[in-house]
């Protein structure tokens, strides 16, 4: 009997993550800003989904996450590589309540901008610039049930 109970508890422990899992989803958008004239005849900037984009254009990438489960999600980490052919726009990453760090080595290591360095062809080390960033990471301590979070950044098409 004890063996049966132990086995049940073990199974429950193994299955625990699934049983208590907060259902966190993430979606991504690529937006461009265009100037439009509103109903009042005034010019305003509107964000629209990017479909065809010219080199040199700055895009806004928005990642939205939602905890649709019943438990709070802890240590929510969102990773976003800077898309190929694009250059991160310095200082553009945002995310309320998040700790934002960057990588210059393909996402292996992350640090705050002032701690990031790169080496040139001769091996000389220098402070990393926004153009050197390969990945962005947002760390959110907690995402409560039903709570939605948004993080994002801007990058320019090379």
């Amino acid at each position: 009997m004890n063996r049966i109970i132990s086995s049940f508890l073990l199974l429950a422990l193994v299955a625990l993550p699934g049983l208590v899992a907060a259902e966190v989803e993430i979606s991504s958008q690529a937006l461009i800003e265009v100037e439009v004239v509103n109903e009042k005849g005034e010019k305003e900037i509107q964000q629209i989904q990017a479909t065809k984009v010219l080199p040199g254009t700055e895009l806004l990438f928005v990642n939205s996450c939602l905890n649709s489960g019943e438990k709070a999600a802890d240590d929510v980490a969102i990773h976003n590589p800077v898309p190929e052919h694009m250059t991160y726009v310095g200082g553009s990453a945002y995310g309320k309540g998040t700790i934002i760090t960057f990588s210059v080595d393909g996402g292996q290591n992350f640090a705050s901008p002032e701690k990031l360095t790169v080496k040139d062809a001769e091996g000389k080390e220098s402070p990393a610039e926004a153009k050197d960033y390969t990945h962005i990471r947002w760390l959110l301590k907690k995402l409560a049930p039903g709570e939605q979070g948004e993080v994002g950044f801007r990058a320019r098409l090379n």
Binding site: F61, H79, N80
Partner: peptide
Amino acid sequence: ISNTATLTYEVG
């Protein structure tokens, strides 16, 4: 050009 973000998290 494609952008995909990924997410990890913990519970308890």
